[in-house]
Design a binder for these strands. Sequence first.
DNA 1: CTGCTAGCATA
DNA 2: GTATGCTAGCAGA
Length: 897
Amino acid sequence: MLLLVDGSSYLYRAFHALPDLRNAAGEPTNAIKGVLAMLHKLRREYAADYIACVFDAKGKTFREDIYPQYKAHRPSMPDDLARQIEPLHAAIRAEGWPLVIVDGVEADDVIGTLVRHATARGVRSIVSTGDKDMAQLVDDHVTLVNTMSEETLDPAGVEAKFGVPPERIVDYLALVGDAVDNVPGVAKCGPKTAVKWLTEYGTLDNLLAHADEIKGVVGDNLRAARDWLPQARTLLTIKTDVELPFDFDDLVLKPRDTDTLRALFERYEFRTWLRELDAAATASPDLPAQDGSGAHRAHYETILTESQLDAWIAKLAAAPAFALDTETTGLNPMQAELVGISFAVAPGEAAYVPLAHHYAGAPAQLARDVVLAKLAPLLESSEPKIVGQHLKYDRHIFANVGVTLAGVADDTLLQSYVLEAHQPHELGSLAARHLGLATISYDDVTGKGAGRIGFEQVAIERASEYAAEDADVTLRVRDALAPQLAASDKLNFVYRRIELPVADILFRMERAGVLLDRALLAQQSSELGRKMLELEQRAFQEAGQPFNLGSPKQIGDILFKQKGLPVVRKTPSGAPSTDEETLAQLALDHPIARAILDYRGLAKLKSTYTDKLPQMIDPRTGRVHTSYSQATAVTGRLASADPNLQNIPARTAEGRRIREAFIAPPGHVLVSADYSQIELRIMAHLSGDAGLLKAFAEDRDIHAATAAEVFGVPLDQVSAEQRRMAKVINFGLIYGMSAFGLAAQLNLERAAAQAWIDRYFARYPGVADYMQRTRETARRQGYVETVFGRRLYLPEINARNPQRRQGAERAAINAPMQGTAADLIKLAMIAVQGWLDAEKLGSRLLLQVHDELVLEVPDHELDRVRAELPAHMCNVAQLKVPLRVGVGAGRNWEAAH
DNA sequence: CTGCTAGCATA
DNA sequence: GTATGCTAGCAGA
């Protein structure tokens, strides 16, 4: 890895950002101190193979030759800054950093060139800079890090920050212009306009080719800048082909020149650093000087012999905690096979045990069973010492070879999820965000796409670097996050008392899987196929030609071009919409729309469910094993995938037939237990609204009760239509509705919808008050909380863009309700599993669908489970309203409702 | 082969 | 109006 520091960019920033520091002689020191502190930090955080600190050269550069005004209006360097440059350069050299200044070339261009050299050699680069222009250098091998703000930018980060990918950054900069360098862009064109244009036209060149299409004053401004923009782009493009008067291989960290450093630190009175120099000198006089700062040079071991293994097992046993990671042949946790195991006991101290690497010339590896037998006491001990990233996966892998992983101390995935649910939680992101470390990515090791190889084919040396680093980084991330969690009782509760125990239960649910009636699904598939053929024929007849009923585009052509049906509305990208609502409206007058609509419904059922589910049956267990993602939904809900068993049809009769294929094995039944109106109950609890609390306390039909209040009729005279409308309003409240949204849903004028909302809030003033308080809390602190203290961040709550802001406000209102419901059912899972274990019952949890738990229950336990399960779910928390659970049982999921 | 859009299944 | 995941079609590599 190559670590490059944009010294010039930090020089100015440190000088302006830090207070005016001086030594006794009155010499300014703030820039020296700021830049050196940054270099110390970087050296602590990165174990780079190549390293350099780059500064601008004095004097003219090529940019001034082609554009004399370049940086022309920049005031000359303040004297107090100029005086610090020479001593700073001296200090950097004494620190052992290669200092790079190339005559007539700006630092940016030197960095651009070095980065290209590195990439050509297959070396990753990290560029530490405060300059946004450098974003143009980012790609899969190049990451930016702003050491002052701790922000890192990979390609996705650049896109997220600027709205355009790295390769469009120069086009973007040319349009916006750079005031600092005195390079004008298009007048009145700021970041928003630039992104809009580039999104629409792709490139600057293409935009210029279509400049005549841009309307308004900005369009005129664009055309006025037409001849200038290519030159602006040249000025703003970082060069990558500068001739360098040194060898790339010279860019390595050298020993510190402690005598020079001591002299400089004394002169400028950097007392803390002086003490560190003295401490390093006394503590380890024999060590190379550059390790004196506490940098952790990675020490990774590849374990190929039993004696190595024994030594490491002794280390693991002695350590208070250790990180563990498995490498496998694939991503399906039920089927992937163990290829190797890595461990870490301290920062930088990690090892990899290859077990099943298969490729020509692979060295002999320790036998898997021997290794597992030796490790088993450590892995199966209930003493909580194991740290990992996404340990639920590793548990499956170990279970596949008969080892029961126990003793989990921490899971970094869950730590991160509880601390910052909205951020990425993948290990590489955690390393970048919390440690400032760039790690080897899985794709780097195995390739991606068609060329991807299984981990068993990765060369052991390479695999070892990657795997040991993962364990190493996991342990370091855990150490960084643990204090943050410990600092908050609420977050600590969510992490220790909810997420960690739930992870174990999810592992058991996934492992159990659910039984499907394969024959029933096959029968349904052929029936659906037959009906689809009929509908297809009918549609072709109506259209007068065949077309693909699965293609919204072709449907649009037939309906709106050929047959001239009215366009109801358009999709966001401008095509006429053919969605369900539109087709339903058209179907009133046009039979073809009905045929397409019905076809779609059947196609969805067939492709997503009746065809797909049988393919997902694990051949060895004969059951379907979903994967629950515990760190995906920002509200705290679970997500189910591969296959998603949380969206099995339930609303329509045809759809529900699919639930009949989820069955219990002989001698068992499925039991379904679901919370009744859980989110509205939580709304009553959170708002404390007297009317709502009373309605739930009296166990009313809540939608009817709402209708009675809002429509002003006695409860027993509420019509079905009134109840339906009240139900829509109640759901709207949970979703943070607007009058606009409610009107759309109820087919009303907006004013009428607003009137109903006003009436609701007049009847339930506590709810109105709660909604307002929630918005204010979100605005003030940037997050809202569930009843149990789970935090739900709203990054856009103070956005300038009203659409984004209002979106965040709706999310803020929904999140505490959805999130508290998620907390409650997770607590219920823990309570239920605890009960089943304690009573040694044979019943098993199989599925969780947000407010419903599905269990597989031996016939002889049915009465007991039916009788006792609801109480375990209701008693997990004492809210201001009672919780209610409905329970049903049957031979299949549908019958259990 | 990958990434995007449209559409739709659930709570 | 909240929160997800999956499929097919399609365009551009």
